[in-house]
Amino acid sequence: MIYALAGMFLIIGLFAGVVGSIAGLGGGMFFVPALLYLGNVYAPGSVSPQMAAGTSLIVIGVTALSSSVSYIKQQRADIQTALLFFLGSAPGAIVGVYLNTLLPIKAFSLLFGLFQLSMFALMMVKDKLKPRSVNWDVRRRFVDAEGVEYEYGYNRWLAVFVAFLVGIVSSLFGVGGGILMVPAMMILFRFPPHIAAATSMLVIFFSAMVGSATNILHDHVNWLYAAMLAPGAWAGGKLGVLAANRMKGQTIVLVLRILILGMAIQMIGEAVTK
């Protein structure tokens, strides 16, 4: 059975790595449910919510590192902005780990499902929201491969505050935080989608390392399951960068909406029936 579990985790890691890398989400929305379900099927009671979140963050770091290296080579990741966001996400990640220890499994499943449901709603309306450009301290320009020029920017203190909230969510639910970071970049700061995704992955890598260090100290990592997920996540991160250059953004967003809604319903259903 261990070989079957390793095979399933390899496929999940590959899929989550591809999707997470394309959209800048990290992949934790797939890792956490897989760990809670498959991990406990193989060894009942072996994966607590805290263990799932901690193990997920380790694998997210692998995905984020893999894709960030490729995005930096393509000059798509805004490194300076990523470092600024990290100033907020790092302490937020530590706070999220401690909040995570207070949640029983039923509350964790319910909150995780409601969180995903709220993100589904945000993704449904984000295209209708007008981008903000009030009091930008920093302004940047980017010209894509087709010659289209984008202007984006942000207020430094607002960026740090948003990143702090993202860091909390990242460690609390083990989702990497990109599901909040990317929409925030696009809606609040007018980041073009491909720059938002690439920069988000770099921020996710930094914050995942901080959150992972704290989880390791609390013994919230299942190293066997992390080792099973990591190879697929690394390869998926690389493949996701390649796919991002060819796939239409609208198609990716549609798939993500369906997946997020499906998992939200599943997690809420599990919490209600337990």
Rank of each mutant, 00 (worst) to 15 (best):
residue 106 K to P: 00
residue 160 V to C: 10
residue 166 V to H: 10
residue 127 D to V: 00
residue 140 R to S: 14
residue 91 P to K: 08
residue 180 L to Y: 13
residue 133 S to I: 06
residue 87 L to S: 11
residue 64 A to G: 06
residue 166 V to Y: 00
residue 92 G to M: 02
residue 118 S to T: 14
residue 76 R to N: 09
residue 122 L to T: 15
residue 160 V to F: 10
residue 74 Q to H: 14
residue 119 M to S: 07
residue 64 A to K: 04
residue 151 E to K: 02
residue 104 P to E: 06
residue 126 K to V: 06
residue 154 Y to K: 03
residue 81 T to I: 14
residue 86 F to Q: 10
residue 176 G to F: 08
residue 67 S to Y: 03
residue 63 T to Q: 09
residue 75 Q to N: 15
residue 82 A to K: 06
residue 123 M to Q: 15
residue 62 V to K: 03
residue 142 F to K: 00
residue 64 A to N: 01
residue 103 L to Y: 00
residue 86 F to V: 14
residue 82 A to I: 06
residue 67 S to Q: 00
residue 123 M to V: 01
residue 90 A to G: 13
residue 75 Q to W: 10
residue 137 D to K: 11
residue 183 P to N: 07
residue 64 A to M: 00
residue 117 L to I: 04
residue 155 N to Y: 07
residue 76 R to W: 06
residue 120 F to D: 06
residue 105 I to D: 14
residue 180 L to W: 09
residue 163 A to D: 03
residue 151 E to N: 10
residue 147 G to S: 12
residue 163 A to Y: 01
residue 114 L to M: 13
residue 167 G to Y: 07
residue 132 R to V: 13
residue 126 K to F: 05
residue 157 W to D: 08
residue 63 T to W: 06
residue 152 Y to E: 10
residue 148 V to H: 09
residue 179 I to S: 03
residue 108 F to A: 05
residue 76 R to K: 15
residue 114 L to I: 14
residue 95 V to E: 08
residue 135 N to D: 10
residue 147 G to L: 03
residue 158 L to S: 07
residue 139 R to S: 15
residue 150 Y to F: 14
residue 117 L to H: 03
residue 107 A to P: 08
residue 124 M to L: 15
residue 176 G to T: 10
residue 90 A to K: 10
residue 118 S to D: 11
residue 116 Q to T: 01
residue 79 I to R: 12
residue 150 Y to K: 02
residue 72 I to P: 05
residue 177 G to W: 01
residue 96 G to W: 04
residue 91 P to V: 07
residue 168 I to L: 11
residue 161 F to D: 03
residue 150 Y to T: 04
residue 112 F to P: 01
residue 109 S to P: 01
residue 65 L to N: 03
residue 66 S to Q: 11
residue 135 N to Y: 07
residue 107 A to E: 11
residue 92 G to S: 03
residue 116 Q to H: 11
residue 117 L to W: 05
residue 66 S to T: 09
residue 116 Q to M: 14
residue 104 P to C: 03
residue 162 V to N: 13
residue 101 T to Y: 05
residue 66 S to L: 08
residue 91 P to C: 07
residue 162 V to I: 14
residue 157 W to A: 13
residue 90 A to H: 10
residue 170 S to K: 11
residue 90 A to F: 15
residue 88 G to A: 12
residue 137 D to S: 14
residue 174 G to V: 08
residue 129 L to R: 05
residue 69 V to N: 00
residue 135 N to E: 08
residue 79 I to Q: 02
residue 133 S to W: 08
residue 175 V to D: 01
residue 69 V to D: 03
residue 159 A to Q: 05
residue 128 K to M: 09
residue 121 A to G: 12
residue 179 I to V: 11
residue 67 S to M: 04
residue 85 F to R: 05
residue 149 E to Y: 00
residue 133 S to M: 13
residue 151 E to P: 06
residue 153 G to D: 04
residue 73 K to A: 08
residue 181 M to T: 12
residue 63 T to N: 14
residue 99 L to N: 00
residue 118 S to L: 15
residue 107 A to F: 09
